[in-house]
Amino acid sequence: MTYHLPEFRHPDLPTNELGYTKKQYEGAISTLCAGCGHDSISAGIIQACFELSIEPHKVAKISGIGCSSKTPTYFLGNSHGFNSVHGRMPSVATGANLANRELTYIGVSGDGDSASIGMGQFAHVVRRNLNMLYLVENNGCYGLTKGQDSATADVGSMSKKGAANPFQPVDLCTLAIDLGATFVARSFSGDKDQLVPLIKAAISHSGFAFIDVISPCVTFNNTAASTKSYEFVREHIEATGKTDFIPVRQEITADYDPGFTQEVTLHDGSVIHLYKNDEDLDVRNRLSALQAIHKYKDKGEILTGLLYLDPDCEDLHEIIGSVEKPLRDLDEKALCPGNQALGAINDSLR
């Protein structure tokens, strides 16, 4: 009897620019239920970070409480991590980011963690355009506490308990767009072809990047009458298009049909290519994004893919003009400029 991940990996695994294989981005073996969508998202994050050749020690993973918030243990085992308090991931991420802007911040949260107890924190981290990937693993329930309906459960959706949810759902994507998020996408744990490029683009975006990933809870909310089950999502999923993430330095080789493609260049020079399914959608336009989401919702469908993107935004550091160096790299003189400097500040406020 054992439940260990073997040491061996495929001998032909590809390596990235750092000479690492995917193994260097893995974490401990998952303790989530077998078949939980959250595990697929972890695998997507591993794949994205591997493909981006991110140095694992330059990533910080931060989460709240929930099955989803447990997942940072299961990926990027060589990175920094902070498993915070329920709904409080945003403030910890904000503090960490302000102290050291050189790391890549990956925040993982759940629909309970973000749309219920953490709603206030969520709203404010969006407003501030903190440079991070904020990923919600959305299963429409509180998985960790045995599957109670969460604030993202659709009206009428029924979990294993068998009672239809009577309340209106929170749509975290429209909310994020409204609150000024600069990168918003929705995806599905069961579609890594879509998810991985979105995670790569979100990590490369400098500003607040939000991805709402529908992630079935196999144990409590994968029933025939649930709108967050594998089957329902597969049947009702529509995509804004196929997203290609083209890293800096890599040439674009494919031919695109101009009417249906949209190309966005990110701050760091990488390019996102969207082969659109819907000619009307303009991912640079908030109104167009909101309209598209509602249009599909009215048809009973779930619109996934890249929804909105503003690559030219200013992130929190730029907005408040904070110091560029990480605090740990500042010497005592810079950190404690002394009475004279304090006096000058005080005088400026008089």
Partner: peptide, 15 residues
């Protein structure tokens, strides 16, 4: 099979 990818994700050998 419900195509949840759990096996794909866990398989150490990418089989």
């Amino acid at each position: 099979c419900i195509e949840c990818d759990a096996c794909v994700d866990i398989c150490p050998m990418d089989c």
